[in-house]
Every structure is written in C-alpha cells, then in structure tokens.
C-alpha cells in the first residue's frame, strides 16, 4: 500500500465521519425550539425529493430509462408494495426495456 494513498483514505474517513457524528454530540440532551424541531421532522421527506431528482434522470444517456424506472417504482409503491418489491420490480421493468430497445 502506498502511504500517500493510505493518508488520503484516513483523511477522507475523518472528514466523512465528523459531520455524521457531530450532531449527536452537539445536540445531546438539548431541547430545540418547536420551529426547529418541525424543520428537522421535514428534513427526511425533503431529502428524499432531492435525492431522487434530478439524479434519477441521469442514470442512463436515455432520459426515458430513468423516467420509466421512476414511474415503475412510483406505481408499485402507490399500490402499497413493500420497498424491496418496489426495487426488484423497477429493476425487472428496466431489464425488459433494455432487452427490447
């Protein structure tokens, strides 16, 4: 192993771990205001929106590929399918799509 690369990895590990860890130390036992708590409760759903778009459109040069995957996942989830079924279902739909086109 080159020591330079190892140092780089150690540095990357540190700057990745710190933001993950810090809130648990900083806000331990602290009562945040109602408004801030409300915002933090909103974060997961806003994050999901930002994680899905626009990323899903760019998983393939073919824009329709991502859109079809999104539609398949949405449809399955809307019908109440379990997350794992949603995942496997959209993989299956896209496999069929790329097999045909």
């Amino acid at each position: 192993m080159s020591s330079q690369i190892v140092w780089m990895i150690v540095g990357m590990a540190a700057v990745t771990y710190i933001p993950r860890l810090l809130p648990f130390v900083l806000f331990k036992g602290k009562e945040l205001s109602g408004f801030v708590q409300g915002i933090l409760k909103n974060v997961p759903y806003a994050t999901l929106g930002a994680l899905i778009f626009p990323g899903i459109l760019f998983i393939n040069e073919d824009l329709w590929f991502g859109l079809l995957g999104a539609a398949a996942a949405f449809f399955a989830a809307y019908l109440g399918a379990n997350v794992i079924v949603v995942v496997l279902g959209s993989i299956a739909v896209l496999s069929v799509y790329s097999f045909i086109f």
């Binding site: 398949a72 996942a73 997350v83 995942v87 993989i91």
Partner: peptide, 24 residues
C-alpha cells in the same frame, strides 16, 4: 451490461418506495 444498467435504478427506486407511502 444490461443488468448493470437496470440495477442502477435500485437506490432511486428505494427512495421512491420510502417516500410514496408517506405522500399518500
């Protein structure tokens, strides 16, 4: 190649699967 391409949707599909029940 084809499986790799179709599987690239997996995490996005998971995000959708997590979000939709709460959206409803």
């Amino acid at each position: 190649q084809t499986l790799q391409e179709s599987m690239s949707v997996a995490l996005y599909a998971m995000f959708v699967g997590l979000l939709v029940p709460s959206m409803k």
